[in-house]
Design a protein around this nucleic acid. Structure first.
Lengths: 342, 342
DNA sequence: TTGTAAGCGTTATCAT
DNA sequence: ATGATAACGCTTACAA
């Protein structure tokens, strides 16, 4: 009575009996171990599929000391709220899931909300995962760094920090900020705002690019137009309202995310300022909505697919005991309606 | 030399030696077993925190036959593409993560892309998780149903299907479709389009509500204004373009997602039709962008937080061998600018 | 090329 | 109230 997918789970011992061999032979056959005769191997593998036998991953893990699982951690204590609502997360999560699955790894997902110390090492010490991927190092830099120095296999999506002990994969944020600001400046805009919480490493690097773009052109930027707004649309709205009212000559906006940009366009509209005629707006991420807002959003596209691949690939290198290098990926300016020249 | 978070992992045997008791005592003390003297319990627990000892979950799982893990599966074979890009997913994922963590469960995340049969039972048979939560039963209904009949602990986010053997948690989609259409009809709109792939159970139920709203008022709905568009903005765009051009008298749109609605507003705008003056638009989900688009989106809000809680709670009931009932949650109409009366 | 046997770190069943 | 001891289902030296 093969298959059926029901009934008590078969064990390797059962398979051994069924095949008339020893457990070790089954184990090796299923692992494609070359020392097992090709014929035997094929027979046992056929038998397993026929009976729907699958190796118990828990037992395997206990013995082999490998979980074949990657922990994906999203530190959220920076802004308490659902920062996770940003579509950026589902995007990278989807790609991570693909990349992990392609390599036969499972993906354990957790949010970390308390700013308590040791969650990185815990994810590993706790032996549920072979490596940890942190999405958005944000304020967690210290924690990650300490864990990495102690030998924990951690990689993070985020900004490359000088002297950091852990591997990062992320976009060239300076380039992004620079491209965005340059685009607006080259279109004759002169009074640019920067919206985004510079307490986050990645954002502060985007801001550096924003500044660099001005400096290269010998132009000044206005500190009163720099707002450390959060990612939540609600907050973004509150933070930017006074700006719009107080800065009549504002003619361009570099936002740290598409969501902030979209929110800003709305706020501007309510104040009677048109996008792009009066104010040009550039977002960040090129999330799926960006192309379909009104007006469509000019934005900086990050290659999240490649990023996810790189994260997983590096995690596996660390697991294998090899070394891995950080990666900073170029970004691309996508010009759409929100920044069109008047 | 306690703590330190480094060095070789402590085992229960180590703790036993350290505490001068047997392994069983440590095990029981850590499990707060009442048969262990309160004093001993406290001492051992203190020791564990001091030395940073944590029970090896793999060994525990092997022995106890429980993984304390929930598998969250997202079947994606319906539309091949990144359906996952919809912010709805990150929303529910975030809430699921919270709900699982609150109960001491880990969350294993996987996308299922191939439409091969047995992925539900595999997630369990494979013994990586104690239960499976499926997000969006979509075309997977059959598969889930079969698995559930065989006793697999599965719960799904989605539409309640008559005669289904598995537990579902979802919104009252008929009510949603009805609310959306009624809102537009009551504001004098008469030629409504419905946009959404009715091949998906949830969407077809929303459509039923759309129809009911018309019927209750003795109004006819126009089949040529019903478009089975997909969730991807790109496709939504292509699918709806001809509609806009071909139906000059169209004055209302009920969309199956906020993303589709936003995309539609853009398409309308390009064709010279204003929202809400010429055409009123209602979305679905109340994703974070909805409140901040231009114009802000009238939409149907689902209580995703409660939904996630209910899913996890039911999954745990099934794990415990108890029975669980399906849940259909009311939705709420959120009126914003995109449907304002002319 | 295959088999034997010793663990991996817990929990659960008996005893005491 | 605590301790021995036997599993749980695999992998991997070491033998044959």
């Amino acid at each position: 009575m093969p298959n059926g997918s029901s009934g008590p789970q078969l064990t390797m011992k059962d398979m051994a009996t069924l095949a008339g061999v020893s457990e070790s032979t089954v184990s090796r056959a299923l692992a494609d171990h070359p020392s097992i005769a090709a014929k035997t191997r094929a027979r046992i593998q056929a038998l397993s599929t026929e009976y729907g036998y699958t190796i118990n991953p828990v037992a395997r893990s206990l013995r082999s000391r490998q979980t074949r699982t990657l922990a994906v951690v999203i530190p959220l204590f920076h802004d308490q709220a659902q920062h996770l609502s940003d579509p950026f997360f589902s995007l990278i999560l989807g790609h991570l899931a693909d990349a992990a699955a392609a390599r036969g790894y499972e993906m354990l997902l957790s949010k970390v909300v308390d700013r308590d110390q040791a969650w990185v090492s815990r994810a590993i010490d706790t032996r549920r995962a072979d490596a940890v991927i942190v999405i958005g190092q944000s304020v967690a830099h210290e924690t990650i760094d300490v864990a990495a120095r102690q030998g924990a296999p951690v990689v993070a999506w985020g900004a490359k920090v000088a002297g950091a002990a852990y591997v990062t994969v992320g976009s060239d944020n300076r380039m992004g900020g620079d491209l965005a600001a340059s685009h607006l400046l080259d279109n004759g805009r002169r009074r640019l705002a920067f919206l985004g919480d510079r307490g986050l490493l990645e954002i502060s690097q985007r801001f550096e690019g924003f500044v660099a773009a001005h400096q290269r052109r010998g132009l000044a930027w206005d500190p009163t137009l720099v707002i450390d707004t959060r990612f939540e649309p609600q907050e973004a709205r509150c933070d930017t309202l006074p700006l719009v009212r107080g800065a009549p000559r504002l003619d361009g906006v570099v936002a740290a995310s598409d969501l902030i940009a979209i929110s800003m366009i709305q706020v501007l509209g309510e104040a009677g300022r048109r996008t792009p005629e009066d104010v040009g707006v550039v977002g960040f991420d090129d999330t799926p909505v960006a192309a379909h807002t009104n007006p469509p959003l000019t934005t900086i596209r990050q290659d999240i697919h490649a990023g996810a691949e790189a994260l997983v690939e590096r995690a596996l290198r660390l697991i294998a005991g090899e070394s891995a290098t950080s990666l900073e990926m170029p970004v691309e300016l996508i010009v759409r309606g929100s920044s069109a020249v008047a």
